[in-house]
């Protein structure tokens, strides 16, 4: 490499930076989660939305999406051409989504029991009443999948089908850094010192450290990406979503981390929620468990064993190539994920 090459590299990069800057300045509003939906139910800060359909659903059992408490459900609808929500609607599903809202210190006393029995329970009961059905399908994503699983185990009669995506169930693994680190943390202090509202920024910081060079890698390609205004918007939408990280209600966080990450009580059959022991054997409804092969947040080792613990024989384990987020926003996902789910649900409607 000669000095001339360095100067050439710098000149090229400089030119690209100018274009990138122009595109950035001219970029319009960055919006995520734009698929039309209607607020149908509300309890405390939790809202239940129903996505609007232009035609009647072909799969009649309504599906309620339970997303993780960390980050926001809009990732499922990050942009019109990369939207699991739109794809599922197009395939005939009647879709609801739970918006957990933004807990504050005022919500520090909200427990895991409340999230499962009061909030998910309230949403499920509302839909059952509203649509005159005995049971709904629950589709849980990541931590939302764990919550949906606990609810399904406690109220199997209200859940017709359970779908879990990139969901941690067996926390004994040390494959993922989160699982490793959580075991060495003083969770009580973490909750109490933050006044019962664990900051989303704290969690995001931890997530970022799972792939320490991710930030460099992300920005390395960005100079090229930003030459194209459309690609820039894609990037900005994802950035907006990543940075939208709600705080966590303390008591729920405390039990989730201590009972699950540290003591793996769900798999052991010793988890108690709302005064009842949660048994995975009560998962008697059909189960579709989807995991991502390259998931660094929820490693396959935390998801795969789920199928071995449930009480239903109608359980399917689905391997999806990709990472934790790529499962939902990747180009392959647009062609594969929604059809897989819709087909599976259709067969059990």
């Amino acid at each position: 490499m000669s000095s001339e090459n360095i100067m050439k590299d710098m000149a090229e990069a400089g030119t690209k930076m100018v274009t990138a800057y122009e595109n950035l300045v001219q970029a319009g509003p960055v919006e995520v989660g734009t698929t039309p939906k209607k607020l149908v139910y509300k309890v405390d800060k939790v809202k239940l939305y129903r996505y609007e359909r232009e035609t009647p659903a072909t799969v009649t059992t309504p599906v309620i999406i339970s997303y993780a408490l960390v980050n926001r459900f809009e990732m499922l609808d990050i942009q019109p051409d990369r939207s699991l929500v739109r794809n599922l609607l197009n395939l005939g599903l009647d879709l609801y989504v739970i918006d957990w809202g933004y807990p504050t210190r005022a919500d520090r006393y909200v427990t895991l029991d409340d999230y499962v029995n009061w909030y998910i329970g309230g949403c499920v009961d509302f839909v059952r009443r509203n649509q005159d059905v005995e049971a709904v399908s629950l589709m849980g994503i990541c931590q939302g999948g764990t919550l949906a699983t606990i609810y399904s185990a406690l109220h199997p009669e209200k859940v017709k089908n359970l779908i879990t995506l990139v969901t941690p169930i067996d926390f004994s693994t040390n494959d993922g850094l989160l699982f490793r680190w959580a075991k060495d943390m003083n969770i009580d202090r973490l909750v109490d010192a933050h006044g019962g509202a664990v900051p989303g920024e704290f969690l995001n910081n931890g997530f970022a450290m799972l792939k320490p060079m991710m930030r460099i890698n992300k920005y390395m390609g960005l100079t090229d990406t930003m030459q194209d205004a459309d690609k820039l918007m894609n990037f900005l939408r994802m950035e907006k979503w990543i940075n939208d990280s709600p705080d966590q209600a303390g008591e729920c966080f405390r039990q989730f981390l201590k009972d699950l990450y540290q003591e793996n009580k769900l798999v052991k059959g010793t988890l108690e929620v709302g005064g009842k022991t949660v048994s995975l054997k009560n998962i008697t409804m059909p189960l579709l468990n989807i995991y991502a092969t390259e998931d660094h947040l929820v490693p396959p080792a935390a998801s795969i064993p789920f199928n071995d613990h449930v009480g239903t024989k109608d359980n399917e384990l689905y391997k999806f190539p990709g990472g934790h987020i790529g499962v939902f926003v990747g180009s392959r996902s647009q062609k594969e994920l929604a059809p897989t789910i819709a087909k599976w649900l259709g067969a059990r409607d």
Partner: peptide
């Protein structure tokens, strides 16, 4: 959001 994005890119280029 734009500021953060551009700053991130600048930082990376600086590195």
């Amino acid at each position: 959001l734009g500021k953060n994005t551009f700053a991130g890119m600048t930082d990376m280029n600086a590195a």
